[in-house]
Computed example of a mutant assay.
Amino acid sequence: MRITALLSALCAAAAVVHAVPRTAQIYMQPIPSSSQAPSPLAEVSYDPAALSFSSVISYDAPEIPPAARLVRIGLYDAKARAWTSGTTVAAADNFSKGYSPNIVLSTDGSGTVVSVSCKGVAIDAGQTRDFGPKVVVLPETRGKQPQLNKPVVLSPEGRKVEPEQEKTFLQKYWWMIAIAVFIALSGGGGGEK
């Protein structure tokens, strides 16, 4: 028993050691100027096996034109000139002063990035000293399954069938009680002296 526990612990440790962190290059593009190519926003490192070790490797503060109110964020392949993940739209105000960007990566079951989004979080200098950008990885999980009630049973006429009510002890065993009373009353034959 102890040998199997030791072997399973060693295998789990070996699996963690061989987990290779992945990197993702995040791009951003102002929405009104779609003719402008997307520019790099950040490079993040994440490990699908250990989500708490996700970090921002590099972050370039974006230069957003004053006319742009929205930006597109996602993974972009510069050689193919195509977005390789689902993109999201964020307000350009998320990158203004007083806000720290939080980059959210949504991954599938294999750890591949499916979608990227960004949210600006207000900085409170009195509460924290960590003003830099952060990354959060959301793995794909199975949603909560609905708990269904019992199916409705209908009669051949299409009406709802009411379940039978449970009988009481007297309703079930009245005949046994009647036999016991009969034997008790009639079985007293007397012996004469």
Rank of each mutant, 00 (worst) to 15 (best):
P48L: 11
A90P: 00
G190I: 11
F53K: 15
I57Y: 00
N94Q: 08
A61G: 09
S33M: 07
M28G: 00
P38Y: 01
C118S: 00
A12W: 12
S35Q: 07
K160Q: 13
F53A: 14
Y46L: 01
E157T: 15
F95C: 06
I73Y: 05
A49N: 14
S52D: 14
P156M: 09
K119I: 12
A14T: 12
K79I: 11
V161P: 01
V104T: 14
D60Y: 15
V135I: 09
P30W: 07
Q165C: 00
L41M: 14
F95K: 01
V89K: 06
F95E: 04
M28T: 01
Q36H: 02
W175C: 07
E192Q: 08
V181F: 10
I57S: 02
Y173S: 09
G120I: 01
V71A: 07
A19F: 10
D130H: 15
G74Y: 11
P21K: 07
L138W: 07
N102S: 12
M28F: 02
T168F: 04
G98K: 05
F169I: 12
E63C: 10
V89D: 08
K134G: 03
L10M: 14
L10A: 14
A80D: 12
A49E: 08
G74T: 10
L70P: 01
Q147C: 00
A80M: 11
I177Y: 11
L51S: 02
P40K: 04
R69L: 04
T168I: 03
L7S: 00
A82I: 06
V16W: 11
V152K: 07
F95T: 03
K134L: 06
E166T: 15
V135K: 00
D47H: 02
V17N: 09
Q145D: 00
P40N: 03
V136K: 12
N102T: 15
W83Y: 04
A82P: 03
G132V: 05
A61E: 13
A61T: 13
L41D: 06
Q171G: 14
D77C: 07
E157M: 13
T128R: 10
P151Q: 01
L148C: 11
A15D: 10
V116P: 03
Y173M: 02
K172P: 00
P66R: 10
S33K: 05
Q165L: 07
G143D: 09
A122W: 05
S52L: 08
D93S: 15
G109P: 03
K144A: 07
V17F: 13
Q165T: 14
A24P: 00
A180K: 02
P133N: 06
T141E: 13
A37G: 03
T4K: 04
F95W: 02
C118R: 03
G189P: 00
G74K: 05
E192Y: 11
A12E: 10
S35N: 07
R81N: 11
C11A: 15
A178M: 08
V16G: 04
P21F: 01
S33C: 13
A5C: 15
G86V: 12
K79R: 09
